[in-house]
Simulated assay, not measured.
Amino acid sequence: MTQPHLADEAQPRTPTHHLTLRFSSTRRGARLARQLAVQQLTEWTGLPYDSDPARTVALVTAELASNAVRHGSLPGRDFRLTLLHLRQALRIEVTDTRPERLPSPATAQSADATSGRGLLLVQAYADRWGYEARDAYTKTIWAEVPLHTTGS
Rank of each mutant, 00 (worst) to 15 (best):
S110Q: 10
V38P: 01
Q39M: 10
L81H: 01
S73Y: 10
T95G: 05
D127S: 10
D52C: 12
Q35R: 13
A58F: 04
E132T: 05
T45C: 15
G118E: 11
L59E: 14
T56L: 09
L83E: 01
S66D: 15
P75R: 08
A65V: 00
L84M: 08
L81C: 02
G118V: 09
A68S: 10
L47H: 08
V57F: 12
G76P: 03
Q40F: 14
T107V: 13
V122R: 01
A108K: 00
P103G: 06
A89H: 14
A54F: 07
A65C: 13
T114H: 15
A108H: 06
A54D: 01
A58K: 00
E93V: 01
L119A: 00
T107Y: 09
R55F: 13
G116W: 09
L64H: 12
S110R: 15
R34N: 06
R77F: 12
S66A: 07
S51N: 12
T42C: 14
A33C: 02
G116I: 13
E100M: 03
A113G: 08
L121S: 00
R31W: 10
L120N: 05
S115I: 08
Q109G: 03
D50F: 06
V57H: 12
Q35M: 14
L36M: 10
L81S: 02
R80V: 14
Y49N: 06
R34H: 08
R128S: 07
T95P: 04
S66F: 14
R55Y: 13
A68R: 07
L47V: 13
E43Y: 03
E132L: 11
R87N: 07
V94P: 05
P105S: 10
L84H: 02
D78L: 07
D52R: 09
R117C: 04
L32N: 05
T42Y: 00
A68G: 11
L81G: 00
V122H: 04
P53T: 04
R87K: 13
L90K: 02
A106G: 07
P48L: 11
R31T: 01
R98W: 01
T56E: 07
E100F: 05
R34V: 01
V94N: 04
T56C: 14
R91D: 01
V60T: 09
P48T: 15
A33P: 06
T95Q: 05
L74N: 10
R101N: 06
G72N: 13
D127G: 06
A106K: 05
I92Y: 08
E43M: 12
E43W: 14
L84G: 08
Y49V: 07
L81I: 04
G72S: 11
L74K: 15
R77G: 06
R34E: 04
G130I: 01
